[in-house]
Amino acid sequence: MEEKDENKGSRRNFLKLGLGVGVTSILAATSASLLTSNKAFAGNSEKIKVLTQDGKLVEVNKADLVPADQIVSREDSHKGLPNRKFAMVIDLGKCKNARKCIEACQEGHQLPKEQEWMRVFLMQDTEKTAPYWFPRPCFHCDNPLCVSVCPVGATYKRSDGIVLVDNERCIGCKFCMTACPFSARQFHWKEPTTYTVPEEKYSPETNMPGREGTVGKCVFCPDKLRKGELPRCASACPMGVIYFGDIIEDTVTNGDETIRFSELIKNRAGYRQFEELGTEPSVYYLPPVDRQFPLERGLDGLDEQQIKKYDNVPYIKNLKETKDGI
């Protein structure tokens, strides 16, 4: 029996290895299949539409495209994707704290288990109001205080709205962390050990590998966006809570459903958290109405310690008190 389990483990490892980093693209797949007797293939002539630097749609040969896995250099990461302005819409009515967004983010950015760029708070504004799960990425504000206060320009905002941190430039003064009212930034208090990405492959777009004494945060996954894919959290969410898109083309999608951003915000009374602070976030929220799941579902599968972190939330306090009472 033991032996069997061991075999299973190694088998799983094999599969995981197969999933690891590698540059086998669709491109390679098509060219490999050219060797065919009856010449059924159209070869590499597959055309796709891309947006040029001046914001025009053009058709190019797929084969002419640079592989998307190429690392974006520190200088190039300062330029945003042309004619794009990204925004996220989070539907609080659908979130049940499945934590899949957090896990996908941690896996994608090789973060340690306790470091969460994406957070899910249990919010309850007052004792009388209803509690709700609140996913919080970096808000990528349009008036980013964190960027304003940076003394060395290590954090910057790009034309597509994304705020990044260059941890080769960061001096670790932590001023951005106190300037951010949303606790979105995190410091590497010790040399991180979870990174397998080599140092020379560092790009602010992924912020990997993290360096001791510098700041990291949610990056909106520009590496994915360059490939036309959704950020990791958005594509990982099983509930389709997280919509992401370009508000220049007025469209957001959660992978299943594609909607016009303006209509979604209008029809569902979308708002921005802490609007009064004036940082102009790029993350919008849809109020937690018509819940798809009872709140308690979010507590399923959490251990005692994890539930303990919500102790200050009135709802949890009540829950524990009634439990103790019985």
Binding site: G22, A28, A32
Partner: peptide, 13 residues
């Protein structure tokens, strides 16, 4: 009729 072969990418496609 054999149409040819292709190798799967990291998404299994």
């Amino acid at each position: 009729i054999n149409l040819g072969t292709a190798t799967t990418d990291e998404k299994g496609k």
